[in-house]
């Protein structure tokens, strides 16, 4: 750390990312509470917004494109998706008998 960081001019990327994240979050809140859509449509809507926001944050805050260890990043993301699917789909499958 320490020696090789330099000050950027202005963190535009972060500000834009921040504002877009806020917009997406409030949009999700609005869909859930005030849009009056059918439950299915609400669920689809907020899932889409969630995925959008995840991608946005990966690029705006998490610097996915800036690292020199591309291979590790790829493995990491692939594994994250795998675990996410296992946890969500696995839970639904396992708990289906209660539903």
């Amino acid at each position: 750390m320490g020696t090789n960081y330099h000050h950027e001019t202005f963190p535009w990327k972060h500000i834009v990312g921040f504002i877009l994240s806020l917009v997406l979050t409030f949009a999700a809140l609005w869909i859930a509470f005030s849009s009056g859509l059918a439950t299915k449509a609400i669920l689809t809507g907020i899932v889409v917004l969630a995925v959008l926001q995840a991608v946005l944050q990966l690029f705006m805050f998490m610097h996915v494109t800036e690292s020199d260890s591309g291979k590790i990043q790829t493995i990491n993301m692939a594994y994250s998706f795998f675990i996410a699917i296992v946890v969500v789909a696995g839970s639904i499958w396992t708990m289906a008998f209660v539903l």
Binding site: I83, V86, G90, W93, T94, M95, A96, F97, V98
Partner: peptide
Amino acid sequence: SFIVWVHHFFTMGAGAAV
């Protein structure tokens, strides 16, 4: 280790496939 967790509650009532 991430795809075995149900072995802690086989008796909970999930189906045969699970």
